[in-house]
Design a protein around this nucleic acid. Structure first.
Lengths: 217, 217
DNA sequence: CTATGTAAACTTGTCGGACAACGGCGAGAG
DNA sequence: CTCTCGCCGTTGTCCGACAAGTTTACATAG
């Protein structure tokens, strides 16, 4: 057992907290985050506030153009579509490779069990295990670069979710069933079928999100 | 004809120049880039030097851990393999989608013409059109996020090339032929065959690079 | 001789203040 | 009504400073 500790710099701490507020929906799309405001809110210098903002901007969680304050991006239908299309591409490849090896990532089955264990009452609590399921597929390939790319996408997905906060999107049991189908196809080595399932799964999610988005503002 | 101009900030300018030096092989792997050195070299303050370094670090072109100077990464065989595996994943997906639509990106055929036009004498001059060919496949999907991911990979590829500078890697005509095969399969709608070609194409390139890398130091 | 401990030099992290440049907005001139 | 000018907020960049962490060299103890 390794005891892990980690010392985070101030700009990291500030960045992480803002990220949290973004995902929690506390910072709604369009909100302006000036360096001065962030600096004062956290009691840090403008330099570190600037650094934190630029870090988040590089991650795609904030938008900013020169000489203007950073803003929480407002994701429109096109953005959601692109995010989910890109997700699909990465996950498809992951699934193909896993199916070729007929290897089902244990982390994925475990995560899906948690999805199913989620009471139907609280569908919000199911999004975290859901994310973990999908991430497990990509992580299983053990490719640092692919993983980094996928995780940056996940952040944007969380941003989408925050924008339609708490809205019940899909039936939890149905989601779990679809996940299981994908795993079954992988185990059977049927890449095309697995990809097909994923395609439907993500397309439905994307459509629901876009619909919820259109209803929100 | 629109005359495009662009005003870049100082940190951008510094970052771009360092990037250029990295790609030119002027900064060899392992070199330490302290904030003070960069600041003095470009006659800027340490703050902006710091920002430039952090930007490049975020792009993966420099490595750095806390309280230590940034270093030009030394890419080993595993890195090259991962970069090319990831390339393959993104490009495979691109090819599949293009083949499904039987749409051959004009930019790709054009870039490949340039590859073929490269005299056999200067194989170094062929890497730029070669990159453009591969990038054209991904860009054709018109997905901002996928494109951004791919371009970050391209940067790492250029870093690899810089580490084995000028080494003749593959026969230019063979490369052009392989590209053409891929395009033909796309035109025919045969995704699997196209992916198969790409697989061989990139695997050969990766192997050559790794071999050259092993011979270099 | 090795190992330990310590001091010095170097590097980064963060701060505060300063000023120029850029963007937006409203008041006043035409 | 439109255009211009100037004010104000915001960012870009610089400087100087100090704390904290890292590395190196060295001296000392075993």
């Amino acid at each position: 057992m390794v005891r892990r500790i980690e010392a985070v710099s101030v700009v990291e701490a500030v960045g992480d907290d803002i990220r949290g507020r973004l995902f929690a929906g506390e910072l709604v799309g369009g909100t302006a985050l000036t360096e001065a405001i962030v600096a004062e809110e956290y009691g840090v210098s403008r330099s570190t506030a600037k650094a934190a903002i630029e870090k988040l901007t590089a991650e795609g969680l904030l938008q900013r153009d020169a000489h203007k304050p950073a803003r929480v991006p407002v994701l429109d239908a096109d953005d959601v579509r692109d995010v989910y299309r890109t997700r699909m591409r990465l996950e498809s490849e992951a699934i193909r490779e896993l199916a070729a090896a007929r290897s089902v990532p244990p982390a994925a089955t475990e995560a899906n069990a948690r999805v199913r264990a989620t009471g139907a009452a609280a569908s919000i609590d199911s999004v975290e295990p859901d994310m973990r399921f999908h991430a497990a597929l990509v992580v299983a390939l053990e490719s640092p670069r692919l993983e980094r790319m996928y995780l940056s996408l996940v952040d944007e997905v969380r941003l989408c979710m925050a924008q339609v906060q708490g809205r019940r999107l899909l039936d939890v049991q149905q989601i779990a069933d679809e996940h299981q189908q994908i795993l079954d196809h992988i185990a059977a080595g049927d890449a095309d079928a697995a990809v097909q399932c994923l395609h439907g799964h993500l397309t439905r999610a994307s459509d629901r999100l876009i619909a919820a988005l259109a209803a929100a503002p």
